[in-house]
Nucleic acid binder design. Structure first.
Length: 401
DNA sequence: AATGCGGGGAA
DNA sequence: TTCCCAGCATT
């Protein structure tokens, strides 16, 4: 066991020394403001540092203090998060900021129970905030840390299992040098990001290579053990890009998604599921599809005539792969009834769902009081769209007038 | 314990 | 193109 203790001591000491030399200059490392640390940690969930940096800068510029965030309209927070993904992070972050204002006078709490109680803050982020912002000796075990520890200590447990994270937390807690929690936890993650990478780890420049058990065994390439996620299921959808006419000239029809579920409360172009297509890779249906879309729009209070099939788009979420076919429509003279918008496409949605899955129709029928709007390009600056619709609208931009 | 929830970068 | 990355909430 003496061997193990020495190996741990060596690990922590060498790692800290390496971090002092190698740490990156990141925007949220320039001061130790708990609010900044918190925002950065939420953004960094499932997201690389390079992607986060510009978002972090804009976010802090727009919401410099926790109070600013708490008081802002939710749409502005979502707009600031547009393109970053996992939008419940943004909504939870703001809800938690309001929590802090109400329960803690606007000051980020410095104890475990209160931090862990914040919306969107789980075991990892709790540890990250307490250690990085307050230098408290709490472990912060993310994917980087599990990869580093699984290799250095030759741990073959599947890191996708809940129990493995608990094990790693206990191990990580015991490695934190007294008084150095902030630097040590960041050092661990930095090593995982820069040296002990998922593929082709840079062992030759690793500060702890000499005692890395996986390296000694030649097992660094097969660790960590990780069960694979299910592949995303394909989904085919028909999208309507409706150009307004008359009082809606120069505008395009968009709608806001429901309060919960996929892309909650984000804006999008109207779309309905395509009926299931027989055969593998048969692609999207064409002629009848456009008619169904038109019928849906008509029932929604928008009379529109098809112009052309505009483009195809694909987008992969973690669990769904969207195949989209976008049709341009032109609003017809006498439409423009703005009350009653919504019911039509909801019906189309239900009927299409029935074609592809008769059993599921009950679940998709009733709801949908979706909010529809005719927007100008300038309105895009205020409404948050998922990337896939941004791509479509960007393609359309030259024609939008 | 299993599932829902985005998007980007590297091979 | 295809593959890989992976915290938190909910059920």
């Amino acid at each position: 066991m003496q061997e193990s203790i020495d190996s741990k001591k060596y690990f922590s000491t060498e790692l800290l020394e390496w971090y002092e030399r190698s740490k990156r200059d990141l925007p949220w490392r320039r001061q130790r403001d708990p609010y900044y640390i918190w925002v950065s940690e939420i953004m960094l969930q499932q997201t690389r540092v390079d992607t986060v940096i510009p978002y972090f800068q804009r976010f802090i510029e727009r919401f410099p203090t926790l109070n600013d965030l708490a008081e802002a309209p939710e749409e502005e927070v979502l707009k600031c998060w547009e393109g970053l993904g996992y939008y419940s992070r943004a909504r939870n972050l703001q809800a938690a900021a309001r929590q802090v204002v109400e329960r803690h006078g606007g000051v980020v709490p410095a104890n475990k129970a209160d931090v862990a109680a914040l919306k969107g803050v789980g075991p990892y982020t709790t540890g990250a905030i307490l250690s990085i912002a307050f230098n408290q000796p709490e472990p912060a075990v993310d994917g980087n840390v599990m990869r580093v520890l699984s290799r250095y200590f030759l741990i073959r447990d599947d890191i996708m299992k809940t129990g493995t994270r608990t094990l790693m937390e206990e191990l990580a807690a015991g490695l934190i040098p007294r008084g150095r929690a902030a630097d040590f936890n960041q050092a661990l993650m930095e090593l995982g990001a820069l040296v002990c990478t998922p593929k082709s780890p840079q062992c030759l420049v690793c500060p702890v290579m000499a005692h890395c058990a996986a390296r000694i065994e030649g097992a660094e390439d097969i660790l960590p053990v990780k069960s694979k996620a299910k592949p995303p299921r394909p989904e085919y959808r028909l999208v309507a890009l409706v150009e307004g006419d008359g009082e809606h000239a120069g505008r395009v029809l968009v709608r806001r998604r429901p309060d919960a579920g996929l892309l909650a409360r984000m804006w999008e172009l109207p779309h309905i599921p395509a009926a299931a297509v027989a055969g593998e890779g048969a692609g999207l249906p064409d002629g009848p599809a456009m008619d169904r879309l038109a019928a849906g729009l008509a029932a929604a209070g928008v009379a529109a005539e098809p112009v052309e099939a505009f483009m195809d788009a694909e987008h992969t979420f973690s669990h769904i792969h969207w195949n989209l076919r976008v049709f341009r429509f032109r609003e017809a003279e006498d439409s423009s009834v703005s009350s009653g918008l919504g019911a039509g496409l909801a019906a189309a949605e239900a009927s299409a769902a029935y074609e592809s899955d008769p059993v599921a129709v009950e679940t998709t029928t009733a709801e949908d009081s979706a909010e529809y709007r005719w927007i100008t390009p300038e309105d895009m600056e205020e409404l948050a769209f998922p990337n896939v619709f941004l791509r479509i609208l960007k393609q359309y931009a030259p024609l939008w007038k």
